[in-house]
Design a protein around this nucleic acid. Structure first.
Lengths: 132, 132
DNA sequence: TTCTGCAATTAGACTAAGTCTAAAAGCAGA
DNA sequence: TCTGCTTTTAGACTTAGTCTAATTGCAGAA
């Protein structure tokens, strides 16, 4: 049993071949792929055909069980992220690429706002350009 | 000439009847409406029929000219926001409602990250629940 | 081993959000 | 009034994602 299978099992997800290759792909790419990119890239790693519905089902299952995260930074399709450490995102407005920003790069934000908004989580998206 | 017309003109946007009622609607609602909600609500304020394409064209024009902002906090349709002051958003996870959080409620964030990401802008979305 | 039944997968239909296109309408200036 | 540009329109189209009903694949029971 390889480590991806163990990871899925430990999160209560039965490690079917489809789920394993999808999870593996998301974990081994740093590019925050979309569902469609995942389908394209993963399809020929399986002996059977892989359906679009399975990709979406699997991604939703993995998100719900906490194996990966869904990222919405901009218009367009959802992107997926296997970095489970708390972090934020930086969108390079020139290339569209998304980079992870470690949690500790950003100062602690308030846990309550304007005396009435109780904060449970937050997501920061930075826009800008990478220096060369 | 009313104030909405002046505002559009001052942003270089010709104030057609369609644009005026759409801008007016977005400015007078605090609920961050979607394109579809805008179409539903605004259609009968005009003597002619209002096309979906016009709503999207107008919203894109208004966003590009800086009259309103487009907000993506969660999966689903884009939402529009006429609050031009710099601010962030709070999503009430119970009701789905979006509230504006004034810029000064949140500490200043770094202008450069990890020594290579030059920040031009950022968007913070808080998730949580309003206190009763 | 075979049977049973649930969970996962599949293809394809369907829905929702938004864009594109070609024609018509509106309007500013000559 | 005419001309030409801009805006609007209806509806086709595209993209992202969900739903459905049938099939497949297993795990556990007999």
């Amino acid at each position: 049993m390889n480590s991806v299978e163990e990871l899925l099992t430990s999160h209560g997800v039965k490690p079917t071949p489809q789920r394993v290759v999808i999870a593996e792909y998301v974990m081994n790419t740093c590019c925050h792929p979309t569902a469609d990119q995942i389908l394209q890239s993963v399809a020929d790693r399986l002996p059977v055909s892989l359906s679009r519905a399975t990709v979406y089902n699997t991604l939703n299952t993995l998100v719900q069980s906490g194996v990966i995260r869904e990222v919405f930074t901009e218009p367009g399709p959802a992107r997926y992220d296997a970095n489970l450490d708390r972090h934020h995102h930086f969108v390079d407005t020139k290339t569209g690429k998304i980079f992870d920003i470690p949690w500790q790069e950003v100062p602690q934000l308030p846990q309550e706002l304007a005396g009435k908004y109780k904060v449970h989580g937050c997501q920061i998206t930075f826009f800008g350009q990478m220096e060369d």
